[in-house]
């Protein structure tokens, strides 16, 4: 089992110290189809959990990505701007979107672990 945690909105979080690396799940990229465009938040912006901070688009769908946790955006994955296909190829690795410096680590407790998320997705389809 991986160290990833998931939201009900299909974002994932990997905690590295007091930083949360975030992206979208394999299920989400599969539902979207070929990702063609990613709009990332500004580094330095303060974000609140469950607010829209990024956009991911395929040819026929545009999805808002919510901040899985609150804090400050300290890095974004610029690679995705030029190579949005990385989101499809490696959604939970090279296809990360942004990193958030956690302001309230307790928020992580609200997220699902991988097993719970798998069950959740199975119930959706």
């Amino acid at each position: 089992m991986s160290d990833l945690k998931f939201t009900e909105e299909h974002e994932w979080v990997r905690v590295e110290g007091d930083v949360a690396v975030c992206g979208i799940s394999d299920y989400a990229q599969d539902q979207l189809g070929d990702v063609v465009y990613v709009e990332l938040p500004a580094v330095g912006s303060k974000v609140v959990k469950l607010t829209e901070i990024a956009v991911v688009e395929s040819v026929k769908a545009a999805s808002d990505i919510y901040a899985p946790v609150s804090g400050e955006v300290i890095a974004v994955n610029e690679t995705l701007t030029e190579q949005p296909n990385v989101v499809n190829a490696d959604p939970t690795g090279e296809g990360w979107f942004f990193q958030i410096q956690l302001s309230d680590p307790a928020e992580l407790d609200d997220l699902m672990d991988e097993d719970a998320y798998r069950t959740y997705v199975e119930e959706l389809s």
Binding site: E11, A28, S58, K60, A61, D64
Partner: peptide
């Protein structure tokens, strides 16, 4: 995320 129903868009 919201509204993520896509579909195949290349051969």
């Amino acid at each position: 995320m919201t509204g993520m129903e896509g579909r195949p868009t290349r051969p």
